[in-house]
Structure formats: structure tokens, C-alpha cells
Amino acid sequence: MSFITRGFGGRSRERDDRLPPGQTLVHDFPVLSAGPTPEVDTAEWEFTIRTESGSQSWNWDEFMALDIDEVSTDIHCVTHWSKLGTSWRGVSLDTLFEHVETEYDYVMAHSYGGYTTNVPLDELLDGKAWVAFEFDGEPLDPEHGGPARLLVPHLYFWKSAKWVRGLEMMPSDEPGFWEQNGYHIHGDPWKEERYW
């Protein structure tokens, strides 16, 4: 029954050749959220990688003492918006996994507030992912996942878990929050892996 509403354009949506299929360009930074914004003080913040044999944790100061990367990257949200050339600062997962021993190939990211998302380990290593705490030269806003969020820009942005507090190694790929509720287990924007 749908018909075009006279005079309605909606927010501007630009196509661009650098964008994956079905994406349009935005200049603001829309917020997606599954719940209230957790207020996490850096004094209490902790990041933990848990494996089959133990765990390794960093507090905020220890985290800031690690090698920090400057990242410039495009990001693609499953809700059809993309942003080009966003700039971040964060710690590469290669750095975090340097001293982590695990036989497991899959990762569940856990966030303050209870959010989870799953990513295969090899998609987090080799310069493909970071734990980011600065966006556009400013500390990451709580709305956008501060104090720190995962940044996995080659996958749809729901994989870049906001308010991340740790990674749990898993022997098999288990679905995280959105992945249990309709979204694709993998989420590659170039293949348009949006839903199941």
C-alpha cells in the first residue's frame, strides 16, 4: 500500500563509491543502543582477556601505558549509515594478545551493561581491531562507548562493542546479543551480512 509522501525527503542520504552495498553516508554519528548508557569511571575500569587456562587484566593506567595506535578508518553500521575517515586512538588487539596463550579460535566480547558480541579471533588480529578510547581527538563519549570500545571496522559496527570490559575465548562460535536476535553471526558489510 506504500506510497511516496509528498514533500518528504528524510535526512540526507548520500551514496558514495567507497561505500559497501546498501550504505549511505552520514556526517553525524548516530547512536545505537540496547539499554541505558553505563557510567564507567576510568578509576574502576578494567579490561580482561579470559582463556581456557586463566585470565589477564589491565586497569586504566596499565592500559594507557601500552603501545597506542592512531587509526583512521571507515565505519559501517548495519542500519545503512557509513562514515568515512573516522579517527581513533586505541590499543591494537595484537598488543593485547601478545602474551595470551589460547587454543580457542572464537571470542565473545563482553561489555559493561551486559552487551555481548562474537568475533572469530583471526578477525581481531593482524591490525584489524583495537580497543579504542579516543574519537576525533577527544576521550570517547559515554554515548559512543566510552571509556573504551572495541573497534572492528571491517565488520558492521554492532561488532565494535561499546563499553567493552573484556574478551572471553571460546572453542566454538556462539552468537552474542544482536546475533541471537536476528543479526548475522559474522557481519561483513561488503557481503551485506546483515541478518540471519
Binding site: P30, S33, C77, H80
Partner: peptide, 11 residues
């Protein structure tokens, strides 16, 4: 209800 373009989460 927390709603966004991604979906709605009822708490």
C-alpha cells in the same frame, strides 16, 4: 523500551 534503527530492546 530502548529503540534505535537496529531494533527494540524491552527491559
Amino acid at each position: 523500551v530502548y529503540s534505535s534503527d537496529a531494533g527494540s530492546v524491552v527491559r
